[in-house]
């Protein structure tokens, strides 16, 4: 099976500071990869390079066979590379239903039309209802987003991403800021992601990483220092030193 998403020798420097050094990563359809690393490891820079917010100095990014290295954010989304945001970016005056209708229409290239109202199309409303149901958002579908719980807003972020029918999904800390009581809902939603979708998750919550990922990549100081199974990551000396080691030390001193 060929890779749906590939990063080849990606590097980025701001002045003299190299924030991404020779990063390579490949994902096949259905991949569940977690990207972890201590603060300042370059995870956010990597996300911005991948989605096209930042331009890489060297290296290539491919979605399927398509080289998207020179493309901006919007064309990459249209190629099937979709991200969620670490802090929700939603329209507080619109309802979840409206968010999803707009997203589906946008995917179909109909969102900037004036004629042909947006609630009349039954295939669109059907798809939106399906998404709302899949993520357990039906009860709040008609409430303004500003009024619903933060955990539900995070689920809506995921629903919007799915409505774009991505090939590759980049989840930027999907459980960040969600109260402990609501994380199981996020986790359930992640478990039910379409099996064929390649998912790259950036996450701090180690429990979530170990349950979700089949493959873990550790980034430290802009470099990949480990790539392998979740069960091996904790045993790796380099990782312990760069990341988990700090916890162990903290515990020793405590």
């Amino acid at each position: 099976m060929s890779d749906v998403f590939k990063v080849e020798a990606l590097s980025k420097a701001f002045g003299g500071l190299t924030v991404s050094r020779n990063i390579s990563l490949a994902m096949k359809a259905g991949a569940r990869v977690a990207l972890i690393g201590p603060n300042g490891a370059g995870k956010t820079t990597f996300v911005n390079l991948v989605i096209g917010q930042l331009r890489a100095d060297t290296g290539r990014i491919l979605i399927g066979e398509q080289d998207v290295t020179r493309l901006g954010v919007v064309p990459r989304v249209r190629q099937g590379l979709v991200r969620t945001f670490q802090v929700t970016r939603l329209f507080s005056d619109m309802t979840p239903e409206e968010h999803l209708i707009l997203t589906v229409l946008q995917r179909e290239g109909r969102a900037s039309r004036i004629l042909g109202g947006f609630r009349s199309d039954s295939t669109v409303t059907g798809e939106v209802e399906g998404l709302l149901a899949a993520l357990g958002l039906l009860e709040v579908a008609r409430r303004k987003v500003g009024e619903i719980a933060y955990g539900q807003q995070r689920l809506l972020e995921i629903a919007i991403a799915l409505a774009l029918k991505p090939k590759v999904l980049l989840l930027d800390e999907p459980a960040a800021g969600v109260p402990q009581s609501e994380t199981p809902r996020i986790e359930r939603a992640l478990e039910r992601l379409p099996p064929s979708l390649a998912v790259l998750m950036i996450e701090h919550d180690m429990d979530l990483v170990f349950r979700f990922a089949k493959h873990v990549v550790v980034l430290a100081a802009g470099e990949i220092i480990f790539e392998g199974l979740p069960s091996e990551v904790a045993a790796n000396a380099k990782v312990r030193e760069a990341y988990l080691g700090s916890y162990a030390d903290a515990r020793k001193h405590a």
Binding site: V74, S92, L102, A111, L164
Partner: peptide
């Protein structure tokens, strides 16, 4: 009619958060 259309909604979305609209694949 215009502001209630998908186009009008898109404009309101852009007003609130253009980055979100771009990440939905719209210029």
């Amino acid at each position: 009619f215009v502001v209630a259309s998908p186009f009008g909604m898109m404009c309101r979305g852009i007003k609130e958060d253009p980055i979100r609209i771009r990440s939905m694949g719209a210029f």
